[in-house]
Nucleic acid binder design. Structure first.
Length: 493
RNA sequence: GCUCCGGUAGUGUAGUCCGGCCAAUCAUGAGGGACUCUCACUCCCUCGACUUGGGUUCAAAUCCCAACCGGAGCACCA
């Protein structure tokens, strides 16, 4: 209908949409194949989520293909972690970014060797036996290594020697010819392959492994990648790879870069640093609520949609950014608040003895939007309240939410007497919990809050609920033997 | 040191390509108020930015030059 009346309006709509999501339109969008290419040396973090979300969103927008590729060709320095392959896939799926294709770079070794040999034959690559230090000196002076002019045949012989064990680690590398006098030293004759005498975690027994620039360049072409979005730390990397594309007569994909992202609440983090801290016992695991991993955020009860919106709103910008999780909290709150059941939870509870009341049952709405659906909390003559709420004075009227009003008789010990039933405007309202309620511990990014909750929370396993006046939490674990014990992960206020 | 990139409110972002409609958008945040049996949600109001200095022009956030500040790469890591 609208297409018929005003097709240009629809087009406009799409433009607006692009602006609204902060992701600008991509050029050459007729055909879009994009990839996210992590090294699975640890689980996905909030930083990885940016790569997953932005790449997959673009693929979706243009009806293209989203590829998850594991750049796992370093068995040594950034050694892949076996479990992480599946974790990444899990996290992608969780974020609604199920890849159309999943590949392991380490499965493509024959392909890389094929091109290595092709380049050697072409005279575009050579085996260099300079020491690391010596080559650096030459490079900085703009001088070629003597091996650079070796005949392709000789280079090929020496390449085979790299493969068959004639050379040991560090004794020889395969370099890609660029321009030894290029004004940017970083681009001069870079290394395509090096020797690593360490079995790959996946059990692969190659000893000559490609470095990122080679692997990624070949792989992007093999997969038909059309658009690349990645960190600007790979800026020079791209220029290196373009030399390879020139050698092979290929066109380099369209690329975009983003700057470094640092999150106020997490500071700067790296997968390797986290790995170390976990092994030292600083954290309980990769899903410790204090960590910026997707597994941790999931456990804390963040919705994938909120993470997606949070990331998309950052846009794609080359400037480095420092963002607060408050933005993520706001997004998540919008999603979770309308549906999260309300419960009372009192941390570090203190007992309030109430006189003059008869046993009753409090009716508290599961959600403020519908008072007809409520929890029932039996109350005898005592409740628990939070010490934070003990700001009242003797004689003050205090409203126990959804229960009744009491008048404070004594603060030490805490005693009150029943005052009235109906709400009195202007009365301080506090939440409370029955003394015999389940034991609840809330794991927060800054520590553990121990307290008591109300019955019913144990039925919310895996759900995000709101502990009134405390914050949102995800019910993580329920132990029912004897006294009910519940473990929650703090989401946000 | 060499090479590259970036600088719009506290934070993130739109606008910069193709100067004027930008006394600069939206979100988040902060302050205030309304609503509410939550310090949540919702609604209203307020706060707050074009790094600096030159130049071009009738007109500059937008173009040019310089400076300053910030970042990245210069690994047999990704």
């Amino acid at each position: 209908m609208l297409e018929e009346i005003a097709p240009e309006l629809l087009c406009h709509e799409r433009q607006q949409q692009g602006k609204k999501t902060h992701l600008p339109e991509l050029p050459h969008s007729e055909r879009v194949i994009m990839r996210f290419a992590p090294n699975p040396n640890g689980p996905a973090t909030l930083g990885s989520a940016r790569g997953i979300v932005v790449n997959s969103e673009y693929a979706r927008r243009y009806d293209g293909t989203f590829i998850l590729r594991f750049d796992d060709t370093d068995p040594q320095t950034k050694r892949p972690m076996l479990e992480a392959y599946a974790w990444y896939l899990e996290d992608c799926e969780w974020l609604g970014a199920t890849p159309n294709v999943v590949v392991n770079a380490s499965d493509q070794m024959e392909l890389y060797y094929h091109y290595a040999e092709k380049l050697i034959v072409m005279g575009a690559a050579y085996v260099c036996t300079c020491s690391q230090q010596h080559f650096k000196t030459l490079k900085e002076a703009g001088l070629a290594c003597p091996d650079r002019d070796n005949a392709p045949k000789l280079s090929m012989t020496r390449w085979k020697q790299m493969l068959d064990g004639h050379f040991s680690e560090k004794e020889a590398v395969l370099r890609i010819k660029t321009d030894i006098t290029h004004k940017n030293p970083a681009l001069r004759d870079w290394i395509g392959f090096r020797i690593v005498d360490l079995t790959h975690p996946r059990g692969l027994k190659f000893r000559v492994w490609p470095l990122l620039d080679f692997e990624s360049a070949i792989e992007d072409h093999a997969l038909g990648v059309t658009h690349i979005i990645r960190g600007k730390d790979l800026h020079d990397s791209e220029k290196r790879q373009k030399f390879l594309y020139d050698h092979l007569g290929w066109d380099y994909p369209f690329t975009l870069h983003w700057g470094r992202i640092s999150v106020h609440e997490f500071g700067k983090f790296s997968t390797s640093a986290l790995k170390k801290q976990i092994s030292e016992g600083l954290y309980t695991g990769w899903d410790d609520p204090r960590l910026p991993t997707l597994r941790a955020l999931r456990r804390r009860g963040f919705t994938p949609e909120a993470i997606k919106r949070f990331i998309v709103k950052l846009g794609v910008n080359e400037s480095d950014i420092s963002v607060s999780l408050e933005n993520l909290y706001a997004e998540n709150r919008k999603i979770v608040d309308p549906v999260a059941h309300r419960y009372f939870f009192v941390d570090h509870p203190v007992l309030m003895h109430i006189t003059g009341s008869s046993p009753t049952v409090a009716h508290a709405p599961m959600h403020p939007s519908n008072p007809n659906v409520y929890r029932e909390i039996p109350v005898e003559a005592d409740v628990c309240i939070s010490p934070k709420d003990k700001t009242f004075s003797i004689g003050d009227l205090v409203r126990l939410k959804d229960l009744y009003n009491v008048r404070i008789v004594s603060k030490e010990p805490l005693e009150a007497e029943y005052a009235s039933q109906e709400i009195v405007k202007g009365t301080k309202i506090i939440h409370w919990a029955p003394p015999d309620g389940p034991l609840v511990q809330v794991l927060t990014p800054s520590g553990i809050d121990l307290g008591v909750g109300e019955a019913g929370i144990e039925n919310e396993l895996d759900n995000v609920v709101q502990f009134e006046r405390y914050g949102f939490v995800r019910v993580d674990k329920v132990e029912r033997e004897g006294l009910t014990k519940i473990t929650c992960y703090f989401t946000h206020r």
